[in-house]
Amino acid sequence: MAEQPPESARTLIEVVPALGEVAPLRPGDPVRVVIRFPLGHYRVPLYLRGKTGTVERLVTPAIDNEEEGFGRNAGDRRYYYRIVFPMTEIWTDYAGPPHDNLRIEVFETWLESARHA
């Protein structure tokens, strides 16, 4: 039988988190920006589609801004992640040293794990 964790570390088992409330990604995780092309509104620049980077940090959960752009202002939230991409990953002909990089907040629905790439 499993040992009970200390009181302070226990969570209330009857509480069900909202959709997206638990972040599936952690700092250091390798991720890829999915390739898709929404009509009308998006906040992931085209230059990042299909590019692989690393999670730098989690940003406060927020409403999907593609929906917010059309008037939704409440309801379930997901995380933004600040992602680091080497410049040489984004631009194959980048004119600078390989340690130069770009950092950007990307909404969770745009990211897939690249761990087993």
Binding site: P45, P97, E105, V106
Partner: peptide, 13 residues
């Protein structure tokens, strides 16, 4: 030798 970090600001940050 200095690393350039470009931040592209896209959300509420």
């Amino acid at each position: 030798e200095v690393e350039i970090r470009v931040t592209d600001s896209t959300s509420a940050l």
